[in-house]
Amino acid sequence: MELIHLAFYLGLIIFLVIVFAKAIKIATAPVHLRWELYPVAHEKGKAHYGGSYLEEFEWWTKPLQKNLLGEVWTMFQEIVFLKGVWEHNRSLWFGSAPFHYALYLYVVFTILTLLSLIFGLTPTIEGFSNHSIIKFLNVLLWISSIFGIIGAIVLFLKRIFDSNLKLYSNASHYFNILLIGALYVTSFIWLLSSENTIQEIFGFYLGVFSFSQIPSLPIVGYIHFYLLSFFLFYLPFTHMTHFFMKYFTYHKVRWDDEPNLPGSKFRKKLMEQLNFPVQWSAPHIGADGTKTWLIIASSPLPTKEKKNG
């Protein structure tokens, strides 16, 4: 086993474990109070103008209708077209879009590579280089690399020269862009310098996933996979986890309009939360570390506050 094996395994395991742990932690967070923001994409027949079921007189007498396709379509536009950035921050879109498209294409490239391996397309088989999938993967990696480099350059320059972004950019922002940019630069150089890049990448994944030796790679290939391993290791600790947290910001906050009807799935959890002990110190709260939310909410104002009031 080589060092690159270990680096890749470590990166992948940390990525999977931390992403999973973070997702579980946020998914099991307490039920929060409603804080939806319209348009709510699943409002059937109303989402296009931002309407809700609350528009209906005595809405509880009518069935609540959800259009889940509306959610899918909204997320699709957001992910694929970066609609929000296009509409509200056009100049950034020209950097953000290629940057994100490059990532999407790279993910697709990797998934297709792994699927091809699973279905028996290995570098040793005859006619490998001329296989249409390999040609397609080659194009994908070219586009991804070019988009990634363009996106990284534009975003890096924006962070440096755009006063709106500069003030809020920390060392990690520059580092993140450089790291991701370096991934694409290495894949780009690899594509330029070798005629067998895809074959070599197949060899790498075959080696790491079959726990066997990896055929020799050009130096740029090693750099690329060390960078990728580090990126996998590093990503879960950054704000870039928005790639999956977006599910929660949209579905569990912005679009959470579920009424508290008898039998609501969160009712039991809510009752538990109302019995949490409260520690806030301001006198008007009247907390002592043992009184619960419900007791405080159903108690009159503490005496001291009455005198002040």
Partner: peptide, 9 residues
């Protein structure tokens, strides 16, 4: 934890 500080807002 997830703001990208893109100033789109």
């Amino acid at each position: 934890e997830h703001c990208a500080k893109c100033q789109t807002c």
